[in-house]
Structure formats: structure tokens, C-alpha cells
Amino acid sequence: MKVVLYGIAALLLSVTACAQHTEKAPAGETTAESGQAPVPTQKVNSLNKAGQPAKIKKSNAEWKAILTPEQYYVMREKGTERAFSGKYDHNVDHGIYKCAACGLELFSSETKFDSGTGWPSFYKPLNNKNVKEKRDMSDGMIRTEVLCNRCDGHLGHVFDDGPKPTGLRYCLNSVSLAFEKK
């Protein structure tokens, strides 16, 4: 009985942790019809001397011109889309998930799983150099934020309650991603 109760408590905590910062874009703003800005066509494989993706730096005004209001809110202001509202939560097509802001390849459909949290979840990145992790102490919690390593766009958070082989759950926002079907 205790095991079942602990399991339920763990599931509720993971959904709650993912849901922190859950807000809609400011009232009165609308997104593009598709809900996604076009993914820039930049060199996806350009690397710096350290073998990391070459950084992209833009002003807030430049990002606002590129991203939809919802994408800007999530990716630049570290917001979160509502649970179960994203278009990739239940996507089962095979392909690559890229950064919606800069086009960097981030995750493969091969590592996607249904976490039941309402956000697309993956157990590992396509390439560890393409994502970076940062300690996040907002909302009175200690979490690990996941960012695109090229443009520093907020993608979501990573938790240690995922499936084997990594035991990780990268809980991401659909609006931070662009999907390329294979």
C-alpha cells in the first residue's frame, strides 16, 4: 500500500514540477495560425572551437520579430505552455525535434515517451552538446532548466524520474520545438 501511495505522490510531484511557470501569453496577443514561427534556415552544424554549437545572439526586439508571442514568452521569458495544450505532446511521427528559434537539432522521436504530464518528454538529447542545463531556483523549487545551447532559448526542465536507459525526463514545451518528419 505504501508503495502505491509513494508512486502516486511521485507522479503528482512530477506533474506539479513541470507545471510551474504555467501561464498563457499576455492577454490580447495572438500567435501565428500554426502557433509556430518559421524555423530559421541557419547552418545547423556550425560549431565553435570547443566543438559546441556556434552561439546566436539577438536583441529582444530581434527575437520578438522572429518568434510568435507565445514562443517569445516561453523561450525568452522562461514561461511554460499549459499542460496538454502543445501540439507535440502526443506526436508519434518519426523525426527530429529542433529548436523553434534557431533550428538546432535537439531530440529524436526515438527517445520520446509518454510521461503523462502533458508536455513532450524525452529520455535523452540527440547530442548532449546541443542542450545545456542550468540550475533553476524559481518558484521556491530547485530544478534543472534545459536550454538550446546555440540561442539560449528556454526549452523546459529535466527531471530524474524518466525511463531506462538514462532515468531522465526532459519535459519540454511544444512551442520551443519545431518537428521535422522523417
Rank of each mutant, 00 (worst) to 15 (best):
V3A: 13
V3G: 00
V4K: 07
V4P: 00
L5M: 10
L5A: 12
Y6H: 12
Y6V: 12
L12S: 07
V15F: 03
T16C: 05
A17Y: 01
A17G: 14
H21A: 11
T22M: 13
G28T: 09
E29D: 05
E29F: 11
E33P: 04
G35F: 06
A37H: 04
P38T: 10
P38N: 10
V39N: 03
K43I: 07
V44N: 00
N45R: 02
S46N: 12
L47A: 14
N48W: 02
G51E: 08
G51A: 07
A54W: 00
K55W: 03
K55A: 15
K58V: 05
S59Y: 02
N60H: 07
A61R: 02
E62M: 04
W63I: 08
W63P: 06
I66Y: 00
P69C: 09
P69L: 09
E70T: 15
Y72C: 08
Y73T: 13
Y73D: 13
M75P: 09
E77D: 09
K78G: 02
G79P: 06
R82S: 14
R82M: 13
G86M: 03
K87Y: 00
K87P: 02
Y88E: 11
D89Q: 11
H90Q: 14
N91P: 01
V92I: 10
K98S: 13
K98L: 12
C99P: 09
C99V: 10
A101I: 08
C102G: 05
C102D: 07
G103E: 04
G103I: 03
L104V: 11
E105C: 06
E105N: 11
L106M: 11
F107T: 10
F107V: 14
F107E: 08
S109D: 05
S109K: 04
K112D: 09
K112S: 10
F113S: 08
D114P: 05
S115L: 10
T117C: 15
T117A: 08
T117L: 10
W119P: 04
F122G: 13
Y123V: 09
P125I: 11
N127A: 14
N128R: 11
K129W: 02
K129N: 15
K129Y: 03
V131N: 02
V131S: 07
K134N: 02
R135K: 15
R135T: 15
R135V: 15
D136E: 10
M137N: 14
S138I: 06
M141H: 10
I142S: 11
R143Q: 03
R143W: 07
T144Y: 01
E145K: 08
V146P: 01
L147C: 07
L147K: 03
C148Y: 02
R150C: 14
H154W: 04
L155M: 13
G156R: 03
G156D: 05
H157V: 11
H157F: 03
V158N: 03
F159V: 12
D160E: 14
K164V: 08
K164F: 00
P165M: 01
Y170P: 06
Y170A: 09
L172R: 05
N173T: 07
S174W: 00
S174K: 08
S176V: 07
L177W: 01
L177V: 12
A178P: 01
F179D: 05
